[in-house]
């Protein structure tokens, strides 16, 4: 049998290129792009993080692990990191609640052209310039701003409710920017749930609260989790929203890292802080990966 098969395969190979050639050719553009756009810059940053100073000028460069001790040498960084993680947590939580409910409303209460229009409206924050989006919030949240004025009109005697330059303001700005991710991932998860499943639950005596907690949330868990990942990771690295909406309280890992690159000109410290943040993020997701796998496995 093998004797018969071999010549046939050989003659085929003469006409058609071996499979690995076509596979490589097809994968090359993607991997080439990844190498140039992601891998090489990251590698360079990783190298920077071990240098004693920014590699410019003629001074000799030494390699050191000193920047990875930043959290020990400069204890105030721990407080900033904690605040950053809390900011990420609150933003993700707010996005999860609002995004899930918005996606639920889209899936259960709309259809056809109206649903498409609403989906486009949800994507609008993506189309606006981030800086404009964030600055417009300062107009709303500042003292004598939009919100404050309405409040004074409703309750003239009460004090100001301006919350610009506070953690709440940062979270509001971040939620506005990242909510669409959560809505879209939840929408995709919810839209695949068969109406009959919800009707079956109703016929068995389930009211809306039971349907929400026992059917919809468990079935949409993969969407909620991927939305949380898509929100949490950029939020803890963000620096524009904290800086503009947080003012003095807006010192986060993102702004500290940005300062290292643009103000202090200490690229190695900025790079090492970035990689520390990356490690912390990956550790968090490694912890939750079990939940993630169970979530996707249950509905596959």
């Amino acid at each position: 049998m093998p004797n018969k098969a071999t010549p046939q395969r050989a003659s085929k190979g003469a006409r058609i290129l071996p499979q690995w050639v076509s596979t490589t050719a097809l994968l090359l553009p993607a991997y080439g792009w990844l190498t140039i756009a992601v891998f090489l810059p990251l590698l360079t940053m990783f190298l920077f993080s071990f240098m004693n100073k920014t590699p410019m000028g003629k001074a000799p460069i030494e390699f050191t692990l000193r920047h990875y001790r930043a959290f020990i040498d400069q204890p105030y960084l721990i407080k900033i990191a904690t605040n950053t993680l809390l900011m990420g947590l609150w933003t993700t939580l707010a996005c999860a609640i609002l995004g899930f409910l918005a996606a639920l409303a889209l899936v259960r209460c709309t259809h056809g052209a109206r649903r498409e229009t609403l989906l486009i409206l949800i994507l609008l924050p993506f189309w606006t310039n981030g800086l404009v989006r964030v600055f417009s919030w300062t107009m709303v949240l500042r003292e004598n701003g939009f919100l404050d004025n309405i409040w004074h009109w409703i309750a003239p005697a009460a004090g100001s409710i301006a919350i610009l330059y506070s953690r709440e303001a940062i979270v509001i700005g971040l939620v506005h920017g990242y909510l669409p991710y959560m809505i879209l991932t939840c929408y995709i998860a919810l839209v695949t749930i068969d109406d009959a499943i919800i009707e079956a639950a109703q016929s068995l005596g389930a009211r809306w609260w039971v349907i929400l907690t026992k059917i919809l949330i468990p079935l949409a868990a993969p969407g909620l989790i991927s939305g949380a990942v898509l929100t949490f990771v950029p939020v803890i690295g963000s620096f524009m929203e904290p800086r503009i909406l947080g003012g003095k309280v807006g010192v986060t890992m993102g702004t500290v890292i940005e300062d290292q690159f643009t103000q202090a000109f200490n690229w190695p410290l900025g790079a090492s802080l970035s990689f520390t943040l990356l490690a912390v993020t990956m550790a968090i997701f490694a912890t939750f990966s079990g939940v993630l796998r169970r979530g996707t496995g249950g509905t596959a």
Partner: peptide
């Protein structure tokens, strides 16, 4: 619906995909 005490079967079975058979029945 939830107050009518009906038993219903659907064309698409409509089992809860994230629950075991026993938990489906116990729902």
């Amino acid at each position: 619906v939830w107050g009518r005490n009906i038993g219903m079967m659907f064309q698409s079975y409509a089992l809860f995909p994230h629950m075991t058979v026993a938990r489906n029945v116990a729902f």
